[in-house]
Computed example of a mutant assay.
Amino acid sequence: MPDVSVNGNMQQSEVAATRSGITALEEAFNGVLKSRQDVENTRNNLASGYKGSDGSAFQQLVSSWEGQCDVVLGNLKSMIETLNHTLAVHQQQQGSTKDEINQAYSQSASVFDTLAG
């Protein structure tokens, strides 16, 4: 997770790094998903040829692998969601800061206009 400064705002370079991390995790997720689909296709193609104990062992191997694959996919999804949440929080903070600046500017302009008469 990127470093966050004391006031909770991310630096621009941290935002870019977080977005790059999200992209890399999404690519990894898609790669694992494609591999899982390839294994499923292989299982379906070989299922009719594997009989008896060989077929049973093969099915168990593929099922075990798919279970592990599901764990990896779940972890990748969780990391992607966490980084997306981090960016969303940053954008909300950035919007609030901009609103505060605009409000302060309006107040200062009003004060100046009053003093200028």
Rank of each mutant, 00 (worst) to 15 (best):
L73A: 03
N44T: 13
N41C: 07
S53H: 10
W65T: 09
Y50K: 02
L61P: 01
G55W: 02
N75I: 00
G49D: 12
A47F: 02
W65L: 13
C69T: 14
G74K: 01
S63A: 15
K51A: 07
K51T: 15
Q60I: 04
C69N: 11
N44W: 11
R43M: 11
Q59C: 00
S64H: 06
N45D: 13
S56W: 09
W65K: 05
E66R: 03
G74I: 01
L73H: 04
K51G: 03
G49Y: 15
V72L: 14
S56T: 10
S56A: 10
Q59T: 10
G67V: 00
D70T: 07
V71A: 11
D54W: 07
L46Y: 13
S64M: 03
E66H: 08
A47E: 08
Q68H: 12
Q59A: 13
S56N: 10
F58D: 03
A57H: 04
N45Y: 11
G67N: 07
G74W: 02
L61H: 06
Y50D: 00
S53R: 12
N75F: 04
A47K: 10
S48L: 15
Q60N: 14
D54K: 10
K51D: 06
S64N: 07
G67I: 01
S64E: 05
E66A: 08
S63T: 15
S48G: 15
L46F: 08
W65S: 10
Q68I: 01
C69H: 00
Q60G: 14
A57M: 05
D54R: 13
S56F: 09
S63W: 00
L76T: 02
L73F: 02
C69A: 09
E40D: 13
N45I: 07
V72N: 06
N44I: 09
F58E: 03
N45M: 12
W65E: 10
S64Q: 07
G55T: 00
T42Y: 15
G67D: 04
L61C: 00
Q60T: 06
G52V: 01
V71G: 10
G49R: 13
Q59K: 10
S56K: 11
R43P: 05
S63H: 15
C69R: 01
L76D: 01
W65P: 06
V72R: 10
G74Q: 02
S63F: 04
G52N: 01
N75Y: 05
S48Q: 15
V71L: 10
N44M: 12
G52P: 06
Y50V: 01
K51P: 02
S64I: 03
C69K: 03
N45T: 10
S63D: 15
D54L: 15
D54E: 11
Q60H: 08
S63L: 02
K51E: 09
G67L: 00
L76Y: 06
Q60F: 00
L61W: 06
L46K: 11
S64A: 08
Q68V: 04
V72M: 11
E40I: 14
D70A: 13
S48C: 07
N75K: 09
N44K: 11
N75Q: 11
L46E: 09
T42R: 13
S64W: 04
V62K: 01
L46G: 02
L73Q: 05
A57D: 09
N75M: 08
E66M: 09
Q59S: 12
G74S: 05
Y50C: 05
L73G: 05
Q68T: 12
Q68M: 09
A47M: 01
G55Y: 03
N75T: 05
R43K: 14
W65V: 12
C69F: 02
S53L: 09
Q59M: 09
R43A: 14
S48D: 14
